[in-house]
Design a protein around this nucleic acid. Structure first.
Length: 460
DNA sequence: CGAAGAAGTCGACCGGTCCC
DNA sequence: GGGACCGGTCGACTTCTTCG
């Protein structure tokens, strides 16, 4: 028999030819690949010219002919044709040889023309070596890919900078027009600005602008003017912080970049040596599921362990119907978590889960401090991260009080309004002198999640 | 030395995957 | 669900090589 990988190696004039041939092994390069069924192969290979090269090979004696002008014999095209045949991964159609193949056959001298190994002194080319050099070549394409990434990044930074400039102008316009009028036209105005920020590749900031009207209208009318100032002020703060991110401590820099819309790939976080990891027994104390404007369901699982909090966040398309993370309030499991970098680290990923999650009746491991101290901790966190969002408030010895329609959770000094949606469901708790528990405080209202009382547990 | 074409280089494009 | 990102591929362009 005839062709083998060893034979192809032997024929190759040098290592470079083999490497070049390897790149031609994909069928897409070959408009024609055929055989006559008795050891004659031919094909057309699209080179850099307009007309493809024509290659013919005889399997029996490894004869070859190529119309390319290469001065190497055999050229990469002939080598590639033989290689593909030996590998057998590519289909050769069967047919009668075209004229140009017959032409070559008729003019061809005998099989003996193949000079048997002048190759004694030339370095032997090897297919294995091609595979090896592939890896060696990698750094080059790696560098090119890195350059492309860097280019993309700079482009996006430029787009974001433009977006922030537009935001500044927009904010100034709102101030000029007067903030009292803002709520009445907020929906239309915010939609336009959000779209612009989205186009400026700042999707995080865009989402924030987009949802301003919803947050405003959730408030009593009297509270809206102040909220407008806070919302627009926060936008200004974020735009400024992003521009000056070089001056910020690294965790806060991550925060502002994340708020604007940069993301951290799961893999990158798992591979990050410096990311904070905590192994502990974690207790699920709340789960939330909320549909976002972009038709995604955001599922949060809030955890407590080793005297700290963490939240797992996953996103599921609404269309898939799934609305739960698989965890239930009260579940306990051992796991190592890795926290997303932040000045107030909360969001985390599970690195490895050591035990499965089990429903547990054990009481929550509550701290010794009261609501006043808990609120103090919130304020400290707020200093670290001004756009904090939801923050866990874990307390002992607080009391629920009612004032008109509103319900408040009261400590000695602090009174936190309960979420309106809970004013009815929380009424059984009004009877207790003191309750322990945990809730999520978003800066304006508290969503009570879990409470231990003299009569037992209350869960939202 | 110039022509011709191979080979190398680089950006554009595309489809699959990931992330929010 | 939909954009961002990544790796792979394609093709235009440049550089290199060789020969008459």
């Amino acid at each position: 028999m005839s062709l083998s990988l060893a034979k192809v190696e032997e024929l190759a004039p040098d290592q470079g030819s083999l490497a070049a041939a390897k790149k031609l092994l994909k069928p897409s390069t070959w408009p024609t690949l055929a055989q006559d069924g008795s050891g004659l192969l031919w094909g057309e290979c699209q080179g850099s010219g307009a007309t493809p090269y024509r290659i013919a090979v005889t399997e029996a004696d490894a004869g070859y002919k190529c119309s390319c002008p290469s001065r190497k014999f055999p050229c990469k095209h002939s080598l590639a044709l033989m290689w593909m045949r030996v590998e057998g991964r590519v289909d050769f159609s069967t047919g009668t040889p075209p004229d140009w193949v017959n032409d070559w056959l008729s003019r061809r001298r005998g099989p003996s023309t193949i000079a048997p190994a002048t190759g004694a002194e030339r370095p032997k080319a090897s297919i294995a070596a091609v595979e090896e050099t592939e890896i060696a070549v990698d750094p080059k394409s790696e560098a090119r890919a890195a350059a492309a990434r860097e280019r993309n990044r700079l482009e996006r930074e430029a787009a974001i900078a433009n977006g922030l400039d537009e935001l500044d102008v927009w904010l100034a316009d709102q101030m000029d027009a007067g903030l009292a009028a803002f709520p009445s036209k907020a929906i239309a105005m915010c939609k336009v600005m959000a779209q612009r920020l989205f186009d400026a590749k700042a999707p995080g900031l865009a989402a924030r602008v987009d949802t301003i009207p919803a947050r405003l209208f959730a408030l009593a009318e009297a509270a809206r003017p102040t909220a407008v100032v806070q919302e627009l002020g926060m936008l200004h703060l974020m735009a400024q912080a992003y521009r000056r991110q070089e001056l910020l401590a690294e965790p806060l820099r991550h925060d502002i970049r994340q708020m604007i819309g940069w993301t951290i790939a799961r893999e990158a976080l798992l591979a990050d040596e410096r990311a904070e990891r905590v192994a502990s027994t974690w207790r699920v104390w709340a789960t939330r599921s909320e549909v976002q404007p972009d038709k995604l369901r955001r599922i949060e699982t809030w955890l407590h362990g080793s005297d700290r909090h963490a939240v797992l966040i996953e996103y599921v398309p609404v269309s898939t119907g799934s609305s739960s993370s698989g965890y239930s309030v009260g579940d306990t499991f051992d796991a190592e978590l890795v926290f997303y970098p932040s000045s107030v680290p909360l969001r985390a990923l599970i690195v490895r889960q050591i035990t499965g999650s089990d429903a547990s009746d054990a009481p929550l491991a509550l701290p010794t401090h009261d609501l006043d101290v808990a609120y103090g901790l919130y304020e400290e966190a707020l200093i670290e991260k001004p756009w904090l969002g939801d923050y866990p408030i874990m307390f002992r010895g607080a009391r629920l009080k009612r004032s008109g329609q509103a319900v408040y959770l009261s400590g000695n000094q602090v009174n936190l309004p309960l979420a309106k949606s809970q004013s009815a469901t929380s009424w059984p708790l009004l009877q207790f002198e003191a309750i322990d528990g945990i809730g999520l405080w978003d800066g304006s209202e508290l969503t009570l999640c879990w409470s231990e009382t003299a009569l037992g547990r209350w869960v939202a």
